[in-house]
Design a protein around this nucleic acid. Sequence first.
DNA 1: CAATCACTTGCACATTTGTGCAACTGTCAA
DNA 2: TTGACAGTTGCACAAATGTGCAAGTGATTG
Lengths: 132, 132
Amino acid sequence: MRIASQPLCDRSEHAAARRRLPVTETALERASMLFRAMGDPARLRLLGLLAQGPACVSELAAIEGETVSTISQRLRVLRNERLVTRRREGKHINYTLADQHVLDLVFSAMAHASEAPAAAGLSEFESTKEQS
Amino acid sequence: MRIASQPLCDRSEHAAARRRLPVTETALERASMLFRAMGDPARLRLLGLLAQGPACVSELAAIEGETVSTISQRLRVLRNERLVTRRREGKHINYTLADQHVLDLVFSAMAHASEAPAAAGLSEFESTKEQS
DNA sequence: CAATCACTTGCACATTTGTGCAACTGTCAA
DNA sequence: TTGACAGTTGCACAAATGTGCAAGTGATTG
């Protein structure tokens, strides 16, 4: 089930023109897990809140208007990808962004997102100015 | 079903300590869609390939050992988030990374991912050095 | 000790997502 | 026009994901 059944085009010139990039398979796998963790509005909003300062679960639950359980689950996903860090302080457990890196990621994404008003009815072909 | 039913802790000092951040709800929504699009190993691998140069669908299908249909679907998701661009050239349609921005995002993620060897059995609390 | 607060987790359920097949559109060449 | 090639899309199905409830852990207080 992994073999392309349709006939292939022959475009090996392009393959030759590729730049070499150090992209290992495992790094790619991890990066995708990281993106997936951030790929949920609710979780991303949580990161946004934590970007403004540390907070405990029930605090976040109150702000979001969700159950503590739900928030805890969301934080668990973020924690699994080391996006947030947890520290016990007396009765509560405080969550914080793991590092500035995370924030950069979020801002980069928002920058990209605000450049183009999302995809809806974009023309079939963005530009069409070259020879056959 | 959106009201926290458990008793809340009172930590308003933290709320006061938050830094202001211009994070609109729609920007956040879009960013999460973007992350979601990148949150799949197969699609991220596609971005990795395109980072090395433009390619057409069947070329990518051959490299990945997948059906043309599958690759096309994956590219569609990336295209919806404006991560890649498409241009007809004769018989084929060439895909390219939309901009350098995208590459930065991927590299940032991989940097973060390689810092910590993914989460598995990390200690319950990363650090525990403060008063009650 | 028991009671309470703060949080986590097991489970069940509905929703979303990814995939391939088959059928479609669109391009080029004879 | 016909045929071959390059991609896309509708559909159905399996797998993954997000959610809340209820029951659990762990720390603090009486």
